[in-house]
Amino acid sequence: MTHLCSLSTVPAGRCCVIARIDADADLTARMRALGLQLGRRVHVMRRSPFKGPIQVRSGQTDIIIRRSDAGLIQVRPCDPGGDTAVFKESECA
């Protein structure tokens, strides 16, 4: 059982890989069009205060996404261990 984090909890400056998307078909398609799809590496650029949206970068595209929508995306950390890497329990706040 791998441990995934929701994208909405990943701190700014981190790199992660999208492992699962729980949105409905419509939203999944929209996410895909903006570059958020399974297996893509994304960087969390910044999080706005007061539980505002977060800014993530996928490839050459910067995207803003509300925290609640980002909550539908599950990610694992980018590097060490490749596909099997997991977040430590404590990292998902």
Partner: peptide, 11 residues
Amino acid sequence: NIDPLLMELPP
């Protein structure tokens, strides 16, 4: 009936 907010942040 909240619309997801998801958009490009252009340069």
